[in-house]
């Protein structure tokens, strides 16, 4: 009986299987180790990376055979290794003539991919600001979005890769926050949620302004647990969304008073997240996240869940702690089981 119960419990937090940190003296260290295990758990295996690369090169060949002057590139979370299992791959087709963003080209490529037996479940979405075709790649079953004649996604991916190289802890915290928002359906920009780039900017600015980090006192990777709680505290409880905007000028994160950022005025709703586009100071990259009230509430809730869990486990005996998860109080992983091997 106990075995069955255990299996049910641990499937919601699969990253703790065979990784027990309940004997850590500090709960913050326990949480840090769990975050590292979680990131390890959801990171793609060698086979998944290989399957993805094969899929992309197949697609690229198909695009080039249809249009010799065009090329296909990956941007978004796959280009920065910040994707969750099962995420769509975002691609863009760019051509020297810059003439592929029209309805007939979209249908032409869709038909070509179908004829080549690369794509199934194809949708052409041409009447939006950013026309795309969506499909499932036949062999890998990966969902793919292709947009046309755009370079800003590629530039953003390059910038984010630079940030990841220079900001220890950024990747881990971004993946945790993404999974957290994903499980609460607050990560979809079409429904007012927080998009991937906005999440990265929030975590990046946070890590570059944290008192213990700017004084070079701590290694962020060894302090992911307390840093995660401090993050939820900042953006769930204390940040002045009405008055403060986030800026990334020259890669240096800072806050500024919204009053001084003239381009976002007049503001329809002052209680909103405003993040200055690192590539265009007049553009607010999070203007679509109109549901910031729920996002803030969710962050505050995560702070309460995690700290309550810390208080509870702090007072518990070693045997009561065994097999428990700290992180699992705010993050669940649902989905097909993944191989979890130590490498």
């Amino acid at each position: 009986k106990t075995k069955i119960e255990e299996k049910i419990v641990t499937t919601e937090y699969p990253w703790i299987v065979n990784h027990d940190h309940s004997k850590q003296t500090e709960i913050a260290d326990w949480l840090t180790l769990e975050i590292q295990d979680f990131v390890h758990y959801i990171s793609p295996s060698k086979e998944e990376i290989k399957a993805r690369n094969i899929t992309i090169s197949k697609l690229r060949q198909a695009v080039k055979s249809l249009w010799p002057d065009a090329d296909l590139h990956v941007f978004g979370s796959y280009a920065t290794d910040l994707y969750l299992p099962g995420s769509d791959i975002d691609c863009v087709v760019n051509s020297t003539n810059c003439d592929k963003q029209n309805t007939s080209s979209l249908y032409k490529l869709a038909k070509h991919l179908k004829d080549e037996h690369i794509a199934t479940e194809i949708e052409v979405i041409s009447k939006t600001r950013v026309p795309i075709i969506k499909f499932v790649e036949v062999e890998s079953r990966i969902h793919i979005d292709v947009s046309f004649e755009r370079t800003n996604g590629l530039e953003a991916a390059k910038l984010i890769r630079d940030w990841l190289d220079t900001t220890p802890g950024l990747r881990e915290l971004v993946l945790i926050v993404k999974q957290f928002l994903h499980s609460r359906r607050l990560n979809n920009v079409h429904t007012g949620g927080l998009g991937g780039f906005s999440i990265i900017c929030l975590v990046y600015s946070y890590l570059h302004m944290h008192p213990r980090i700017i004084t070079n006192e701590i290694d962020p990777v060894e302090n992911l647990g307390v840093l995660l709680i401090d993050f939820f505290e900042l953006y769930g409880k204390n940040f002045g969304y009405d008055d403060v905007a986030i800026s990334m000028t020259d890669g240096m994160p800072s806050y500024l008073n919204k009053y001084d950022w003239r381009d976002i005025h007049p503001m329809r709703n002052p209680f909103s997240l405003a993040i200055q586009d690192p590539g265009d100071k007049t553009n607010n990259i999070s203007r679509g996240s109109f549901n910031i009230r729920d996002i803030k509430k969710a962050f505050a809730g995560a702070f309460d869940l995690l700290t309550n869990r810390c208080f509870e486990l702090d007072g518990a005996t070693l045997s009561e702690r065994k097999g428990k998860s700290v992180l699992g109080n705010c993050i669940k992983y649902k989905g097909k089981e993944r191989d979890f091997t130590d490498e």
Binding site: I27, D29, I218, E222, V226, D314
Partner: peptide, 18 residues
């Protein structure tokens, strides 16, 4: 005492070689 932030706000300070 059982709800003190110092229970979780614990930083692992660098062995400061510098």
């Amino acid at each position: 005492r059982d709800r003190c932030p110092s229970i979780w706000r614990v930083y692992l300070i660098k062995e400061d070689k510098e």
